[in-house]
Amino acid sequence: MTAVPLPYRVTANRPESADTRTIELQPVAEALPVFAPGQFAMVYAFGVGDIPVSVAGIDGSALTHTIRGVGATSRALCAVRAGTQVGVRGPFGTGWDLPSAAGRDLIIVAGGIGLAPLRPLVREALSAPGTYGRLNVLVGARTPADLLYRSELDGWGHPYCGVTVDRAGPEWTGNVGVVTALLDQAAFDPHDTTAFACGPEVMIRAAARELLHRGVPAQHIRISLERNMHCATGHCGHCQLGPLLLCRDGPVVAYDRAKPLLTVREL
């Protein structure tokens, strides 16, 4: 982990949806330590600012990020051109810790941009057949046009990859409804399942409630809380949620720890 950002070259920038792009980065010289799925980087758009962004792909020292342009910095990062440079600090945060779920069924619940940090987790699980039980990937998006990684989703369907949207046009032949409804189709033994969820907090709470209802223990539900953060090193307190500093103790937290904090009106 470095205090100053290391320069990374943008090697690709492709659209995912109207407001979301995936960028690929290669270290210009020195590389950061290897990231684990679920961890995040502070990515610096020179002259604009830096923001926390999860790793959406890890290939040796190369990093992939999927960024939704919502404000000045994220929009600047969406606009970076191949060949230009950005600054990167990291790795930060707790990560999904997939290996500790060895032998268990896996349920991955993603909403919107929340699929980005879960993508390397799905890839890690797919690359180790036999290590984990059944892999279920449940993806929700607002409309079909908002779906990320469309070309990859088909390859994730072992035994189940379900995609649902809130609003569908006539061209859509898939599911319509909330992402939690896809649990009906998933194949898992709740007591022997580890679930991973990322997305808007409303969705995370709904997913956790439904998983608990079906018998998945709270300590085996891991969620990623992407509250806004600033220093990413546990000093500034910007990302404090109750006793947790999410940049250090999170973003991935087990639901038995997170639940009491998520139900408080404002913290």
Partner: peptide, 14 residues
């Protein structure tokens, strides 16, 4: 479920 979908669930801060 219908009420949840009234929110911009997948947007910033739902």
């Amino acid at each position: 479920a219908a009420r949840t979908r009234l929110l911009d669930l997948y947007g910033p801060y739902g």
